[in-house]
Amino acid sequence: MAILEVKGLKKRFDSLEVLKGIDFSLEKGEALALIGVSGSGKTTLLRCLNFLEVPTEGQILVNGQVIFDASNPAMLSEKEIRHNRLHFGMVFQQFNLFPQYTALQNVTLAQELLEKDTAEYKQNKKAVMERIHERGAELLGTVGLSDKLDYYPHQLSGGPPQRVAIARALMLEPDILCFDEPTSALDPELTGEVLKVIRGLADRNTTMVIVTHEMKFARDVSDKVLFMDQGVVVESGSPQEVFENPKEERTRQFLERYFAE
């Protein structure tokens, strides 16, 4: 069974229909690369998955369970959304780290807040905090920042902030981790280290949806590629199919233009 199913997802901003009925599914452990020209609706799709936008129509299923249905207003209560969005993690283009917290605190803050209400926390605050901090430090180790735990965001530059953001998203153990052009705000020489971290996650079978303009990376790392244009999925398939043997004219044009540059 697919871990993620998106059915007939539409999103309209006033008169502008940005997503015009998106359908796709993703198996556990797969990485999905989402490609397309800027303005095609990729960010909006990720934002819908993370409930930062409310889709106008359609359904989102995780592990076969409907977690969003545009025709069911009961699913839009703040509490319901807060619970359901934890199926997803999000890594933003602009990192959005919290400036007043260290790298480690950025990673652990949300988990601490989530566990504050548990009985275990009330009984043994210290042990819970220790466990959370250990886990946070371990994750920062995974992204290669063991030596930067106590650095504040402004003391980190280049690739590290985005790697902290990745660790922060991993902390809550989302079923599906979303990346919105994770390297677009970075200087070209710094993209490599971030891509390497994502590649490492793919090797460990993290389920991911990755919006990216790095076509070579998309081809290497993904199990499945979705090409979007003007709010629709024009073509989808394995990286070999989409990159080497595109069926659609629009996909071919997009790739030609990309690789010509």
């Binding site: 993370n50 409930f51 930062l52 703040e78 807060r82 619970h83 969005r85 934890l86 997803f88 993690g89 999000m90 933003f92 602009q94 959005n96 780290l97 919290f98 400036p99 007043q100 803050l109 949300a110 807040l113 989530l114 922060r168 998203a169 809550l172």
Partner: peptide
């Protein structure tokens, strides 16, 4: 983005305000 980062991490509006926004 500060609010959104808090939201996707499952924080409540109140938590976001007091833990993320206020000090800034």
């Amino acid at each position: 983005g500060q609010y959104e980062a808090g939201q996707v991490l499952g924080m409540t509006k109140v938590q976001i305000f007091f833990k993320v926004i206020l000090l800034q």
